[in-house]
Protein backbone atom coordinates (compact mmCIF):
# COMPACT_ATOMS: atom_id res chain seq x y z
CA UNK A 1 0.00 0.00 0.00
CA UNK A 2 0.94 3.62 -0.46
CA UNK A 3 1.99 5.26 2.76
CA UNK A 4 -0.74 7.16 4.48
CA UNK A 5 -0.18 10.35 6.45
CA UNK A 6 -1.54 10.30 9.92
CA UNK A 7 -1.60 12.84 12.74
CA UNK A 8 -1.54 11.40 16.24
CA UNK A 9 -2.88 13.62 19.03
CA UNK A 10 -1.58 13.06 22.52
CA UNK A 11 -1.41 14.55 25.98
CA UNK A 12 1.76 15.14 27.97
CA UNK A 13 1.01 15.74 31.62
CA UNK A 14 2.14 14.95 35.18
CA UNK A 15 5.68 13.71 35.38
CA UNK A 16 6.06 13.72 31.61
CA UNK A 17 6.16 17.53 31.43
CA UNK A 18 9.90 17.34 32.14
CA UNK A 19 10.66 15.31 29.03
CA UNK A 20 12.60 17.51 26.63
CA UNK A 21 11.64 17.78 22.99
CA UNK A 22 14.63 15.70 21.90
CA UNK A 23 13.88 12.99 24.46
CA UNK A 24 10.24 12.94 23.38
CA UNK A 25 11.35 12.15 19.87
CA UNK A 26 13.33 9.13 21.05
CA UNK A 27 10.54 8.09 23.37
CA UNK A 28 8.05 7.87 20.51
CA UNK A 29 10.53 6.02 18.32
CA UNK A 30 10.92 3.37 21.00
CA UNK A 31 7.20 3.21 21.64
CA UNK A 32 6.65 2.51 17.93
CA UNK A 33 9.24 -0.25 18.05
CA UNK A 34 7.65 -1.81 21.13
CA UNK A 35 4.16 -1.54 19.71
CA UNK A 36 5.37 -2.95 16.37
CA UNK A 37 3.32 -0.37 14.55
CA UNK A 38 3.44 -0.27 10.74
CA UNK A 39 5.23 3.05 10.51
CA UNK A 40 7.26 4.10 7.53
CA UNK A 41 11.02 4.13 7.98
CA UNK A 42 13.43 6.47 6.30
CA UNK A 43 15.77 4.86 3.83
CA UNK A 44 19.54 4.95 3.93
CA UNK A 45 22.36 3.60 6.01
CA UNK A 46 20.73 4.09 9.38
CA UNK A 47 16.97 3.74 8.88
CA UNK A 48 14.67 5.08 11.55
CA UNK A 49 10.94 5.55 11.87
CA UNK A 50 9.71 8.80 10.41
CA UNK A 51 8.01 11.07 12.94
CA UNK A 52 7.73 14.81 13.25
CA UNK A 53 6.11 17.09 15.80
CA UNK A 54 4.02 20.04 14.71
CA UNK A 55 4.90 22.37 17.56
CA UNK A 56 7.35 21.87 20.42
CA UNK A 57 6.06 22.26 23.95
CA UNK A 58 8.14 24.14 26.50
CA UNK A 59 9.75 22.08 29.26
CA UNK A 60 7.53 22.13 32.33
CA UNK A 61 4.31 22.92 30.46
CA UNK A 62 1.66 20.24 30.14
CA UNK A 63 -0.22 19.73 26.89
CA UNK A 64 -3.63 18.23 26.03
CA UNK A 65 -3.57 18.71 22.27
CA UNK A 66 -0.02 17.87 21.19
CA UNK A 67 0.45 16.21 17.87
CA UNK A 68 2.89 14.07 15.98
CA UNK A 69 2.82 13.38 12.25
CA UNK A 70 3.90 10.10 10.74
CA UNK A 71 3.22 7.75 7.84
CA UNK A 72 1.54 4.37 8.02
CA UNK A 73 2.58 1.56 5.71
CA UNK A 74 -0.44 -0.62 6.45
CA UNK A 75 -4.06 0.07 7.14
CA UNK A 76 -4.85 -0.10 10.79
CA UNK A 77 -7.96 1.14 12.54
CA UNK A 78 -7.67 4.32 14.57
CA UNK A 79 -8.87 2.52 17.68
CA UNK A 80 -6.20 -0.10 17.37
CA UNK A 81 -3.51 2.47 16.66
CA UNK A 82 -4.47 4.44 19.77
CA UNK A 83 -4.64 1.32 21.89
CA UNK A 84 -1.28 -0.04 20.79
CA UNK A 85 0.39 3.30 21.30
CA UNK A 86 -0.98 3.61 24.79
CA UNK A 87 0.15 0.14 25.75
CA UNK A 88 3.68 1.11 24.80
CA UNK A 89 3.89 4.61 26.25
CA UNK A 90 4.68 5.78 29.78
CA UNK A 91 1.62 6.59 31.89
CA UNK A 92 1.77 10.34 31.56
CA UNK A 93 1.81 10.37 27.79
CA UNK A 94 -1.51 9.25 26.33
CA UNK A 95 -2.51 9.06 22.72
CA UNK A 96 -6.03 10.49 22.44
CA UNK A 97 -6.90 10.18 18.78
CA UNK A 98 -5.47 9.91 15.30
CA UNK A 99 -6.66 11.22 11.96
CA UNK A 100 -5.50 12.26 8.56
CA UNK A 101 -3.90 15.73 8.84
CA UNK A 102 -6.13 18.59 7.73
CA UNK A 103 -3.97 21.65 8.31
CA UNK A 104 -0.29 22.27 7.75
CA UNK A 105 2.01 22.87 10.71
CA UNK A 106 2.94 26.22 9.12
CA UNK A 107 -0.65 27.41 9.59
CA UNK A 108 -0.37 27.33 13.38
CA UNK A 109 -0.80 30.82 14.82
CA UNK A 110 -1.52 30.62 18.52
CA UNK A 111 -1.76 28.45 21.60
CA UNK A 112 -4.25 28.69 24.42
CA UNK A 113 -3.12 27.98 27.94
CA UNK A 114 -4.61 27.45 31.33
CA UNK A 115 -2.54 28.32 34.36
CA UNK A 116 -3.23 27.50 37.98
CA UNK A 117 -0.98 29.22 40.43
CA UNK A 118 -0.54 30.44 43.92
CA UNK A 119 0.68 34.00 44.41
CA UNK A 120 -0.31 37.47 45.59
CA UNK A 121 -3.52 37.97 43.50
CA UNK A 122 -3.61 41.71 43.84
CA UNK A 123 -0.09 42.03 42.62
CA UNK A 124 -0.90 39.73 39.74
CA UNK A 125 -3.94 41.75 38.65
CA UNK A 126 -1.90 44.90 38.82
CA UNK A 127 0.83 43.25 36.77
CA UNK A 128 -1.62 42.19 34.07
CA UNK A 129 -3.24 45.60 33.81
CA UNK A 130 0.00 47.48 33.23
CA UNK A 131 0.41 49.13 29.86
CA UNK A 132 3.56 47.18 29.04
CA UNK A 133 4.90 43.89 30.25
CA UNK A 134 8.56 43.89 29.31
CA UNK A 135 10.22 40.49 29.09
CA UNK A 136 13.29 38.83 27.70
CA UNK A 137 13.07 36.01 25.24
CA UNK A 138 15.90 33.73 24.29
CA UNK A 139 16.32 33.45 20.54
CA UNK A 140 18.90 31.90 18.29
CA UNK A 141 20.57 35.28 17.97
CA UNK A 142 20.69 35.98 21.68
CA UNK A 143 18.31 37.67 24.07
CA UNK A 144 15.52 39.79 22.62
CA UNK A 145 13.41 42.31 24.48
CA UNK A 146 9.69 42.18 23.87
CA UNK A 147 6.44 43.49 25.28
CA UNK A 148 4.28 40.53 26.30
CA UNK A 149 1.24 42.76 26.66
CA UNK A 150 1.09 43.24 22.89
CA UNK A 151 0.82 39.50 22.34
CA UNK A 152 -1.18 38.42 25.36
CA UNK A 153 -4.86 37.74 25.04
CA UNK A 154 -6.56 37.08 28.39
CA UNK A 155 -9.58 34.82 27.98
CA UNK A 156 -10.56 34.28 31.59
CA UNK A 157 -9.16 35.46 34.88
CA UNK A 158 -9.90 34.77 38.52
CA UNK A 159 -7.62 34.58 41.56
CA UNK A 160 -5.09 31.82 41.04
CA UNK A 161 -6.38 31.03 37.55
CA UNK A 162 -5.71 32.43 34.12
CA UNK A 163 -6.76 31.32 30.67
CA UNK A 164 -4.91 33.11 27.91
CA UNK A 165 -3.31 32.81 24.52
CA UNK A 166 0.08 33.62 23.06
CA UNK A 167 1.34 33.51 19.48
CA UNK A 168 2.69 30.12 18.44
CA UNK A 169 4.39 28.65 15.44
CA UNK A 170 7.73 28.16 13.81
CA UNK A 171 8.04 31.85 12.92
CA UNK A 172 7.18 33.45 16.22
CA UNK A 173 6.46 31.67 19.43
CA UNK A 174 6.12 32.80 23.03
CA UNK A 175 6.40 30.27 25.83
CA UNK A 176 3.64 30.57 28.39
CA UNK A 177 6.10 30.40 31.26
CA UNK A 178 7.56 33.74 30.18
CA UNK A 179 4.50 35.55 31.54
CA UNK A 180 5.03 34.18 35.03
CA UNK A 181 8.77 34.75 34.99
CA UNK A 182 8.03 38.36 34.11
CA UNK A 183 5.54 38.61 36.98
CA UNK A 184 8.09 37.40 39.53
CA UNK A 185 10.66 39.80 38.19
CA UNK A 186 8.45 42.87 37.93
CA UNK A 187 6.42 42.41 41.11
CA UNK A 188 9.34 41.17 43.16
CA UNK A 189 7.04 38.53 44.67
CA UNK A 190 7.19 34.79 44.39
CA UNK A 191 4.87 32.27 42.78
CA UNK A 192 4.53 29.33 45.14
CA UNK A 193 3.14 26.84 42.73
CA UNK A 194 2.44 26.98 39.05
CA UNK A 195 0.93 24.52 36.61
CA UNK A 196 0.53 25.54 33.01
CA UNK A 197 -1.35 23.45 30.45
CA UNK A 198 -1.65 24.04 26.74
CA UNK A 199 -5.32 23.44 26.00
CA UNK A 200 -5.62 24.34 22.33
CA UNK A 201 -3.54 25.04 19.25
CA UNK A 202 -5.22 27.21 16.63
CA UNK A 203 -4.58 28.36 13.10
CA UNK A 204 -4.65 31.95 11.90
CA UNK A 205 -8.31 31.62 10.88
CA UNK A 206 -9.18 30.79 14.49
CA UNK A 207 -9.92 27.12 13.77
CA UNK A 208 -8.42 24.32 15.81
CA UNK A 209 -5.26 22.82 14.31
CA UNK A 210 -6.35 19.37 13.20
Amino acid sequence: METKNIRVFFSKTGRAVYISHLDLYRLFQRAIKRAKLPIWETEGFNPHVYITFALPLALGTAGLCESMDTKLTEDISTDELVQRFNDALPRDIRVLSAAEPVRKATEIALSEYEAEFDCDSEAFTKFLSAEHIPAEKKTKRGIAELDLKQHLNVLEQRPGYLRFSFPSGAEFNINAGLLFDAFEKISGTEIYSLHITRTAIKCSDGKIFG
Binding site: G14, R15, A16, Y18, I19, S20, D23, L27, R30, A31, L59, G60, A88, L89, P90, R91, D92, G177
Partner: peptide
Protein backbone atom coordinates in the same frame (compact mmCIF):
# COMPACT_ATOMS: atom_id res chain seq x y z
CA UNK B 1 12.73 21.22 38.52
CA UNK B 2 12.90 23.88 35.83
CA UNK B 3 15.83 25.39 37.67
CA UNK B 4 18.05 22.31 37.32
CA UNK B 5 19.84 20.53 34.48
CA UNK B 6 18.00 17.60 32.87
CA UNK B 7 15.02 17.59 35.24
CA UNK B 8 13.48 14.39 33.88
CA UNK B 9 15.99 12.31 35.86
CA UNK B 10 14.55 13.58 39.15
CA UNK B 11 10.88 12.81 38.63
CA UNK B 12 10.44 9.11 37.78
CA UNK B 13 7.40 8.03 35.78
CA UNK B 14 9.48 6.31 33.10
CA UNK B 15 8.11 3.41 31.10
Amino acid sequence: LLKVQKPSRYIGGEL
